[in-house]
Amino acid sequence: MRAFNLQPKPLTLTERLADLAVDALIDEADLSPKPALVDRRGNGAHTDLHLSLMHASALSLWPAFKAMAEAAIEFGEVGLPLREALGRIGRDGEQTMLATTNGVNTHRGAIWALGLLVAAAALECTNTKASAVTLRAARLALLADRYAPRPLSHGAQVAQRYGARGAREEAQLGFPAVIQRALPQLKLSRAAGHGEQNARLDALLAIMTHLSDTCVLYRAGETGLQTMQLGAQAVLDAGGSASLAGRRRLHELDQQLIALNASPGGAADLLAACLFIDRIDSGDGIFQGAF
C-alpha cells in the first residue's frame, strides 16, 4: 500500500494574493488597542460589530479577492474590461459579505481598496514594489465603471458635503495615506525597536493625522475629524504607542472618539491596505518561485 502524500499542494498566485488580503483584514481587526475601533478589547464606538464578525467577514471575501486576481491575469492589462470585471466581482463579494454579517457593513471600503491592490499585484507579479502596485491600482481606479450603482454611498455623500477626499479619490491618487504616511511610519517604528504591534498602531495613527475619514465625518462631523487628527498626532508626538506617555494619549483619544461615536473606519481600511502592501513589498520572494 502506498503511503498518502501529505505534502500540501503549492498555492497559486491568485490564492496567495487572496490569502494576503484576508490576512491583512484579520491583522487589522486583531490589532489592539485601536481608538474607537473593533479590536480584541471590545466593539469601540460600534454597537453592531464585534471581532468574530470582522473575522467572518474577512474570510467570506477570500473568493472575491481570488477572482479579482484571476481577472487581472486573464485581461493582462489596465483597461476598462478589467475595471468593470473588478466592479462586478466586488459587488458580488459585498453581497456575500452582507449575507455573512446579516446585513452589517463590515468591509465595504476594504473590498474597494484591497480589490484594486490585489488586481494590481496580479497584473505584474514580478514588480510588486509599493510604488508600482499603487500606481497600477490608481490607473484602474481612474477608469469609470459603467455598471456601478448610481446612488452614492454614505462615504461619497459625506465627501461631497465636506469637500473631503473619499475612498475613491484616495485610490485614484495612488493611496497617498499609505505610501506617504503609513508605510514610512511603520518602518520607522520597526527600526526604533518598538515591536510589530506598536509599529502597526503607529502606522494607523499616521494615517489618522491627515486623513479626512468619511466614516468619522458621517458619524461626528468636523468636530470628530479634528479630534481624530489632533489626537493621533498627539500620540505620535508623545513617543508613539510604544511609550507610556503615548499610551496615555492613545487611551484619551479612544475615550474621546467613543464619546463622539466617531469610529475611524476609513483609516482602518487603509491600514489593511498598508499591511497588504508591506507584505508584497518586503522583497522576500513571495511571488518568485513560490508557486
Rank of each mutant, 00 (worst) to 15 (best):
M1T: 15
N5V: 11
P8Q: 07
P8L: 08
R16P: 01
I26Q: 01
A29G: 05
K34P: 04
K34F: 01
P35G: 07
V38Y: 00
N43D: 10
H46F: 13
H46C: 06
L49D: 01
L53S: 09
H55I: 10
L59K: 07
L59N: 07
A64R: 05
K66R: 15
E70P: 06
F75L: 07
V78D: 10
G79M: 14
L80P: 10
I89P: 04
D92M: 13
D92G: 14
L98V: 03
L98A: 02
T101E: 07
R108V: 07
A110D: 00
A110G: 01
I111V: 13
A132S: 14
L140G: 03
L142V: 01
D145V: 03
R146M: 12
V158I: 11
Y162K: 00
R165L: 13
R168P: 02
A171G: 06
Q172D: 04
A177S: 15
Q180W: 13
Q180R: 15
K187T: 08
S189H: 11
A191N: 15
A191E: 15
H194E: 14
Q197A: 12
A199F: 08
R200F: 11
A203V: 09
A206R: 01
I207W: 07
H210R: 13
S212V: 02
S212I: 03
A220F: 02
A220K: 02
M228K: 00
A232H: 03
A232Q: 04
A232V: 02
S243A: 08
A245N: 12
A245H: 12
R249P: 08
L253G: 07
L253N: 12
Q255A: 15
Q256I: 15
A259K: 15
A259T: 14
L260Y: 14
L260P: 14
N261Q: 15
S263W: 11
G266L: 07
A267T: 13
A268S: 09
D269K: 02
C274G: 00
I277D: 05
I277W: 06
D281G: 06
D281T: 10
S282A: 14
G283I: 03
F291C: 12
